[in-house]
């Protein structure tokens, strides 16, 4: 119990004193996972639209692959990204291993199938004739896509939240491709792992609580966007 109380106290202290190291780590967590989520939303929803709105051979197989990807273990992604970004690897010329860019790269790979899988389900859940109805109202293809996204906005926002939740909380890939370098590629999760390993449970607790608060705040923001403009 003492440990938890001490942790809470430490967290309070670190937050109130605006400890520059902790602030830096928090900001980097938010930045890396935020950019990764943004990329995955862009790719995931566009590809989700393409898959949901078109009929083609192998569609079921593709959707199954994407759905499997929703449970992609971050360490596996970390391993593959490390190998790819390794100096002699296929993407070695990018020279981004052990940088925040590499972490964004890995996290985007983790989040994209999550966003895409939920997007496909969300769009397929709309009535099949909805597209015909929108076109018969005189919409261009672009207008149709916009209306469909608006119609599926609740589950699509859920897709964004799930994507963000998936990457802000992962540690395996970040530690492997980022290296947990102090002041450079250290994020809340990697720092927590490290502090726990060192036996600094109070700091680890503090970081965990900050992480939880951060996830809550971001999701609260998303939820506000999701639920706005719901007519009575």
């Amino acid at each position: 119990m003492d440990l938890i109380l001490e942790g809470l106290l430490k967290a309070f202290q670190l937050i109130v004193s605006l400890d520059p190291e902790v602030l830096g780590i928090t900001w980097l967590s938010l930045k890396v996972s935020g950019v990764a989520t943004l990329i995955s939303v862009f790719i995931g929803i566009s590809c989700g639209l393409l898959v949901a709105l078109n009929r083609f051979p192998g569609k079921k197989l593709l959707v199954s692959v994407v759905n499997t990807g929703m449970g992609l273990p971050p360490v596996v992604v970390g391993l593959f990204v490390t190998v790819f970004l390794w100096r002699n690897g296929p993407l070695g010329f990018l020279d981004i291993l052990y940088t925040p860019s590499a972490m964004i790269f890995a996290q985007a790979i983790i989040a994209t199938p999550i966003v895409m899988g939920i997007s496909i389900a969300a769009l397929q859940n709309l009535p099949a004739k909805m597209r015909l109805q929108i076109l018969s109202l005189g919409a261009t293809r672009l207008q149709m896509v916009r209306i469909l996204i608006r119609e599926a906005r609740l589950p699509l926002m859920a897709a964004v939240m799930a994507g963000f939740g998936g990457v802000i909380s992962e540690v395996g890939a970040s530690i492997m491709v980022g290296g947990n370098i102090m002041g450079y590629s250290r994020v809340l999760t990697t720092a927590t792992v490290m502090e726990t390993g060192r036996g600094n449970f109070d700091v680890a607790f503090a970081l965990s609580i900050i992480l939880l608060l951060l996830v809550f705040l971001v999701n609260y923001l998303f939820t506000l966007i999701q639920q706005r403009e719901r007519p009575r």
Binding site: P127, K129, M130, L132, Q133, L135, S136, L137, G138, T140, I147, R150, E151, E229, P231
Partner: peptide
């Protein structure tokens, strides 16, 4: 496209938008 803007259609289900 021009023709579609001259006509409109109502289906068996109302297919209303969520607004």
């Amino acid at each position: 496209f021009r023709y579609r803007r001259m006509v409109s259609m109502v289906f068996q289900e109302p297919l209303l938008f969520d607004t």
